[in-house]
């Protein structure tokens, strides 16, 4: 430091600030990571706390309360909402429906995705075109496209019934027949959902080194053995990913049911998301809606951990 040699009072003062500045600069440099990290993270974590953590806690608390959300204050009702969900036949049906839809859509979708991805992974011409045919449906809006799907099943002037009439067959009134509605909801969901899984499996298949197959072929393995001992085990990690991210999507089925069946007939195709929506906005019962949301969250956690448990044993796809 230049000023250190002089004994001038002002200079001492300047030295002091300079060294303090210097010290701060050094401190800041030494803690650069923490300073910059927290400068960036603090507002983001604050926002996240307000718009994620707080709502989740509020949801949890509201699930023990009765509240219209419009006026008055919430009233503590303990486990009454949960008891309703587990004893009211309607709500039990809704929970079961959600699980049945989520699992069946996921299974159909994943199985189909594996088959299609294997076919697309073969040396074929026009792969881009085929891939587009399978992927474009995922780009459609669930709400807008469900209205097109509804045209197909509309009772009097729907596509399917007009075709049946031309064939001199009796019409099917789809939305009074629960089995038909289930099949249609599953088919529509798979149509919109399978594309993403195909892309994932294609990526996994293309990540398998050709040398593995070549080495096995040199050792005399046939096509089936190659598939059984190389393709299947190497697709397992992707299957974990597809099933876990998949269940999070399929368990939240909403627009499809809302537009195709409105939950009918007699709630037999109703699902949690739709019931939560109705409880919250039509019935103004935020407590029940929050309980539904908590139950859906719990189901997802249970599903995901079961998936992981099963798949970590490596028994999938055999």
């Amino acid at each position: 430091m230049i000023d250190a040699t002089t004994s001038n009072i002002t200079n001492v003062h300047v030295t002091d600030t300079l060294s303090r500045k210097e010290a701060f600069r050094r401190w800041r440099y030494r803690h650069r990571h923490a300073v910059e990290g927290w400068t960036i993270l603090t507002p983001i974590l604050l926002y996240y706390g307000i718009f994620f953590l707080f709502p989740v806690i509020a949801s949890l608390l509201l699930s023990f309360m009765k509240w219209s959300g419009l006026s008055g204050s919430p009233e503590w009702v303990g486990l009454a909402n949960y008891r309703r969900f587990l004893s009211d036949p309607t709500y039990i049906t809704i929970i079961v429906n959600t699980m049945v839809f989520a699992v069946s859509i996921l299974i159909v979708q994943t199985a189909l995705a594996v088959v299609i991805a294997l076919m697309l992974n073969a040396k074929i011409k026009g792969r881009g075109l085929f891939r587009a045919a399978w992927y474009v449906p995922t780009l459609t809006s669930a709400a807008v496209m469900a209205q097109v799907a509804f045209v197909f099943i509309s009772p009097a002037d729907g596509v399917i019934n007009m075709v049946l009439r031309q064939l001199k067959l009796p019409p099917i009134i789809f939305y009074t027949q629960v089995d038909w509605m289930r099949v249609i909801i599953i088919a529509y969901s798979v149509w919109r959902g399978v594309g993403g899984a195909i892309i994932l499996y294609l990526a996994a298949l293309q990540g398998i080194h050709p040398e593995l197959y070549e080495a096995a072929q040199v050792d005399g393995a046939n096509g089936r053995q190659l598939f059984r001992h190389i393709t299947v085990p190497l697709l397992a990690p992707m299957t974990v990913f597809v099933l876990i991210t998949g269940i999070i999507g399929t368990a939240q089925i909403f627009e499809t049911v809302m537009f195709l069946s409105k939950g009918g007939p007699a709630n037999l195709t109703n699902v949690l998301m739709l019931q939560i929506y109705q409880d919250a906005f039509a019935n103004q019962s935020l407590g029940l809606a929050s309980t539904g949301a908590m139950i859906l969250g719990l189901l997802l956690i249970v599903f995901s951990s079961i998936n992981m448990r099963i798949l970590s044993r490596g028994r999938v796809g055999n």
Binding site: P55, A251, M273, L286, A289, L300
Partner: peptide
Amino acid sequence: LSFRGRDAAFTFLLMSLMLPGIVFQVP
């Protein structure tokens, strides 16, 4: 960057990937 609390903050953020949107949409 590496600093204390970084991984805790990341885990905190990751929680939202595990819950369905509806859990925070109603509140």
